[in-house]
């Protein structure tokens, strides 16, 4: 309120209170005007107060909404983060599961599943492109004797070591797997029989040189192998049967040798 206004109000209050002016013709009119002025002022103050209250209520509401929004946002971020980690965990479990489903747990070599998959792929490729490919079936000589004499733990060690040496000796694109028991299969893509023969000879001689220590004894083993080259039109099982027959022949020839299928 300005000073002039304050002075004016004081003046009007004094004039209205002056007994000498009570009979003045303007006194009644001024009194009425003064009364209405006060009423208006009161109303305006009330409206201002109410409007302020509404404003502060709206502000409170806005604050609580913002707070809730922030909370939801934080929760959403956390849900996304945890969800990502669960998915990551599932992915890793999937990889481990796939590894377990396609590999022999003892030697960590491929098991029959990927071997057969690869055999199918190679026969198809061979039919399409006409490139040669070979398989070699390998068997540890007199493995049962090792198991019987030294126990299964030593037998397992022999299998693990044989697998390790075999995998180290083949080419990068050959596939080595455990076919069963003490029998191993090597798939040799892009190879004719003569080349496969050389590679298998190298594998066998590396295994011959391998030493497995059992207490004071040093154990060495030999390998027999049968090889076959894929013939057009043949099924992969037909190919395996021929390699198997060649392996049998190698065994009959006195073991520690390799035989080529007809």
């Amino acid at each position: 309120m300005s000073r002039d206004q304050g002075e004016l109000e004081t003046l009007i209050k004094r004039l209205l209170a002056d007994p000498d002016l009570r009979e003045h013709p303007l006194n009644f009119a001024l009194g009425q005007l003064w009364f209405q002025y006060r009423e208006l002022l009161n109303r305006m103050e009330r409206i201002t107060r109410m409007s302020d209250a509404y404003q502060s209520m709206a502000r409170q509401r806005e604050l609580s909404l913002a707070e809730r929004f922030d909370k939801q946002l934080r929760q959403l971020e956390k849900v996304a983060r945890i969800s990502d980690r669960y998915q990551h965990m599932m992915r890793e479990l999937n990889i481990a599961l796939k590894e377990a489903a396609t590999h022999d747990p003892l030697t960590a070599l491929a098991n029959r599943r990927p071997l057969i998959e690869r055999l199918k792929a190679e026969t198809e490729r061979c039919e399409r492109l006409g490139h040669g490919f070979c398989v070699a079936m390998l068997d540890i000589d007199r493995f049962k004797l090792i198991n019987d004499r030294y126990g299964h733990d030593v037998g397992d060690t022999v299998l693990i070591e044989t697998a390790r040496v075999m995998e180290a000796e083949v080419r990068d694109y050959d596939l080595c797997g455990r076919w069963g028991g003490e029998e191993f299969l090597i798939i040799l893509p892009e190879s004719v029989l003569a080349l496969a023969d050389d590679i298998v000879r190298r594998v066998r001689s590396a295994i011959d040189r391998m030493k497995v220590r059992v207490g004071d004894e040093v154990l060495s083993i030999t390998i027999s192998a049968g090889l076959a080259q894929y013939r057009g039109g043949e099924s992969y099982s037909g190919l395996l049967n021929r390699a198997d027959a060649a392996l049998l022949q190698a065994k009959r020839n006195g073991r520690d040798s390799q035989q080529l299928a007809d």
Binding site: Q75, K78, V79, A80, I82, S83, Y86, M90
Partner: peptide, 12 residues
Amino acid sequence: LYLNTSSIKAMM
């Protein structure tokens, strides 16, 4: 063990 996204939200 495994929780999908809506289960994570529900647990929270």
